[in-house]
Design a protein around this nucleic acid. Structure first.
Ligand SMILES: [Mn+2]
Ligand SMILES: [Mn+2]
Ligand SMILES: [Mn+2]
Ligand SMILES: [Mn+2]
Lengths: 222, 222
DNA sequence: ATAATTATTTAGACAAGCCTAAAAATTTAA
DNA sequence: TTAAATTTTTAGGCTTGTCTAAATAATTAT
């Protein structure tokens, strides 16, 4: 029933998933090439193959989007990726900046039984170590109610719930600033000059750059 | 330092490792082809490439064996394979006949940190779920003192310590017979006619075929 | 020792995934 | 609304890993 897809094809499906949104429903080959670290011509090749397999809808010069089956496949790979990240952090005690590249490999292991048992072993976690939601086995992914710290209201208790950039460099910098998921933040002041924020993190006041504020998600906290 | 090897190349190294012994130090392309489920001509191609990379020593028409670096790489893959099998059985509660194919994929994940932490997480196991020894990080593999049940002495307490054939079919059949690692066995009688054995397993007497006896390893028990 | 058989390698082909260079379509600017 | 710039696709080539068919080496039988 389930046609075989190569790791490379899976990575493309994931990239298309991540690069399309409600208001930008298709992605260009150039953007996809950037995301994949490949040349646009290579992407065109791949997208044409995926189109023949009915995993994407592709129109020459018009960009590409996932088909329904492609979307389901992408969600399954993302589910595996995030479950493995939880395993690596919670069970093997990796830090949140070390797990992405390993999960990038583990997500391609093909065994439904393995994914099922891994999820059960981990207690069916809802989010990964970066605060991203884990799709269910059925392919449902919970919409996140979160806002960028940059746009959060002043003098309001907030809690850190996710990151926009999950590069090791950014995550390590957050560590250095004492910022992690679940940490309480309050924005005390916005500096007009450079966009930096004066914040209180766990009742300690510090100034953080606008670049951090643009890549950190928060929710209304207690 | 560590040159990249593809999953396919890794599987070949493993196959060469398994098919060479002290008294048969080289393996033929035909035998290797059988082991890999490929044609001999494909194997010739591959061993020539591996030879250029100095992972094997290959002489036209004379067969192939691992070089020192090839041997080290093979042991590292086998270490990963067996560690993952332990994880699947001990932590995810797979049965011993279900884990080989999954481990066949997991063994190719490239991350030394992952292997190290997995080993620690599992408590540095010495053997896998089939009784096979797990090489150390340094590449030391413990020689097993075990004998085929077929050749074991009569009326002697024995304990089951491994299998020669680890196919799902054989392992499931062993389950059905109540045979597993650590189970106590005693050979009561050898039947000349068909090579079958009358054995006592956990103090219950039953007859087992010679094919089982040829694929089951035992040690002197308590 | 020669012939027949078997094992092994070579030759040529193909698909997947990538590349560069060139052509074509689209978008932007004049 | 043409012309210029940019984006995207096509053409052709390379590597890996596989195959089949043909050639060659090695082994076995006569
Ligand atoms: Mn991946
Ligand atoms: Mn993540
Ligand atoms: Mn394998
Ligand atoms: Mn095993």
């Amino acid at each position: 029933m389930k046609r075989k897809i190569s790791p490379s094809e899976e990575d493309y499906l994931k990239a298309i998933y991540h690069k399309t949104t409600a208001d930008a429903p298709v992605v260009s080959t150039t953007l996809l090439a950037e995301e994949m670290g490949a040349k646009p011509s290579s992407v065109t090749d791949m997208v044409q193959r995926l189109s023949e397999k009915a995993l994407v809808e592709y129109q020459k010069y018009k960009g590409v989007k996932l088909s329904d089956t492609g979307n389901t496949r992408a969600l399954s790979i993302i589910r595996k990726h995030r479950l493995w990240e939880v395993f690596l952090v919670n069970e093997l005690h990796f830090s949140w900046d070390q797990v992405h590249d390993i999960a990038e490999q583990l997500e391609h292991i093909q065994s439904e039984a393995l994914t099922d048992r891994l999820a059960a072993f981990l207690g069916h976690p809802k989010t990964d170590p970066h605060g991203d939601p884990i799709p269910t086995k059925e392919g449902n992914i919970q919409a996140q109610t979160k806002m960028l710290l940059e746009l959060a209201p002043l003098n309001t208790p907030l809690v850190c719930v996710g990151v926009e950039d999950s590069s090791a460099a950014f995550l390590q910098f957050l560590d250095k600033c004492g910022i992690g998921l679940g940490v309480n933040i309050e924005v005390l002041e916005k500096e007009i000059f450079d966009g930096s924020l004066l914040v209180s993190i766990d009742s300690k006041t510090q100034r953080i750059s606008s670049l951090i504020a643009q890549n950190l998600y928060v929710n209304q906290g207690q």
